[in-house]
């Protein structure tokens, strides 16, 4: 479905976001991308989405080389990026074509992300986490085949976070979306992903790739997953992060 061959991204100022990435993703797979801050995760998602065409190497979706945004792509940015002139219930269906039962779907997703009662609020009147939830709903409502998520749940409290992780899982089960999830939360990656890539360094490179064979839905307190968590923490080498 998605194939990345030897992809690097070097900015015009000579800085390199990430380098020599190879990855091939099957339909319906959920890939987690873990890595320290600044190792090029957001840059990678921008390249995959087609927003950033100035990369070296090959990115292919269904065998086609990516030169612009592919219609199968959906994305949740690291920031909410809501349209300030639209109410919550207009922001959510922003990406839907006009004939797709906009209001119904919007209302359904407002419910799913727990924003009942805020339909008519403008983005300026939302909290950071609420704005992020609107952005999540806006991306999920279009049910894209490939969903790129850049730390989507990082602004949320633990409980809402779990609810939305389950929402994402439900979407995945319903549509068999292919998902690439950038996250700093190891538990989240273990809960949702089939494979976890660990990026390290600046510029970032793939340091390790872990496969999590367990079927979803998984238990949050699973002992096997807890073991993997320890392994991941070692791989991320937290001692190096601490003195950064």
């Amino acid at each position: 479905m998605l194939a990345i061959e030897n992809v690097s991204r070097t900015f015009s100022n000579g800085e390199t976001g990430f380098k020599n990435l190879n990855l091939s993703v099957k339909k319906g797979e959920v890939i987690g991308i873990l890595g320290t801050s600044g190792c090029g995760k957001s840059t990678l998602l921008r390249v995959l989405s087609g927003l950033d065409e100035h990369y070296d190497g090959q990115v292919k979706i269904d065998g086609e080389s990516v030169t612009a945004v592919h219609e199968k792509i959906g994305m949740i940015f690291q920031e909410p990026r809501l349209l300030p002139w639209l109410k919550v219930r207009e922001n959510i269906p922003f990406g839907l074509k006009s004939d797709e039962h906009k209001t119904e779907k919007a209302l359904k997703y407002i419910e799913s992300v727990g924003l009942n009662g805020f339909e008519n609020h403008y983005p300026k009147d939302l909290s950071g986490g609420m704005a992020q939830r609107v952005a999540i709903a806006r991306a999920l409502v279009t049910a894209p085949e490939i969903l790129l998520l850049d730390e989507p749940f990082s602004a949320l409290d633990a409980f809402t976070k779990m609810q939305l992780q389950d929402l994402l899982l439900a979407i995945w089960q319903q549509y068999h979306s292919t998902i690439l999830l950038v996250t700093h939360d190891i538990d989240e990656a273990l809960y949702l992903c089939d494979r976890i890539l660990i990026l390290r360094g600046q510029p970032g490179e793939i340091y390790e790739e872990l496969t999590i064979p367990k079927l979803k839905p998984r238990g949050r307190g699973d002992a096997e997953l807890a073991k993997m968590k320890d392994q991941i923490i070692k791989l991320l080498d937290l001692s190096q992060i601490n003195n950064k």
Binding site: S49, L51, V69, E71, I73, G74, M75, F77, E79, R81, L83, W85, F94, G95, T142
Partner: peptide, 27 residues
Amino acid sequence: RKLIEVGKIYNFSSLQLIRRIILPASL
């Protein structure tokens, strides 16, 4: 630019970008 990218993610045509993002943003 970040708002324009939102439109691009949804494959908006130039006309849609203008009408739905650029016009209201420059109002």
